[in-house]
Amino acid sequence: MRDRLATPTQRRAYGRGGINRVTSPWRANTVPYASILLGSLLPIWVLADVMPVVPPLGFLIFLSWRVMRPGLFPLWVGVPLGAFDDLFSGQPFGSAILLWSLTMIALELIETRFPWRGFWQDWFTASLAIILYICAAMVVSGATVTVFMAAAAVPQILFSVLLYPLFARLIAWLDKFRLSRSRRIG
């Protein structure tokens, strides 16, 4: 279920300025999607010839947004965002659509089961999602999975898991920017 845009408590918390400022709906609704699309696009410009070195940035940012702001995305959002990711990731088309949709459903179920949570639990959930995602993506990549391939993915997995807190901070900062009261009224 989706959140309403600006609840009254948020209106007071984000940004200084006069009382005639509100959250810009345009900014609030585009920033999360733009950051995810950019994350999907960035790894293509890194030249990795030996093994996967860049964490799946699109998925990491998507996951961080989902964990940080549970009601932000509709449940089916994995389809369009995953489709965009598939165009650039080098995976067969459809793999991110499937895996991102499953991630959305799984996180929703975990959340109904454990409604109260903290940072460490979030990190644990996110790590589990990252590990499962990278392994599943390797299986559906169209290559026969060998021991060497799996071993080559270990640094990427570790890197992604350790990067999650950093991404959580980044998303928190982006969220602040997203909800900052920038639109003048009256």
Binding site: P74, G94, S101, G142
Partner: peptide, 27 residues
């Protein structure tokens, strides 16, 4: 409806994935 759409999305993804593994040149 949210759950329904998400499940449908996952199934669509699975279908597309099967097609692109079977016929890589389609997409």
């Amino acid at each position: 409806t949210g759950y329904l759409l998400a499940t449908l999305g996952a199934l669509v993804g699975l279908g597309l994935l099967a097609i692109s593994l079977w016929q890589p040149s389609v997409f």
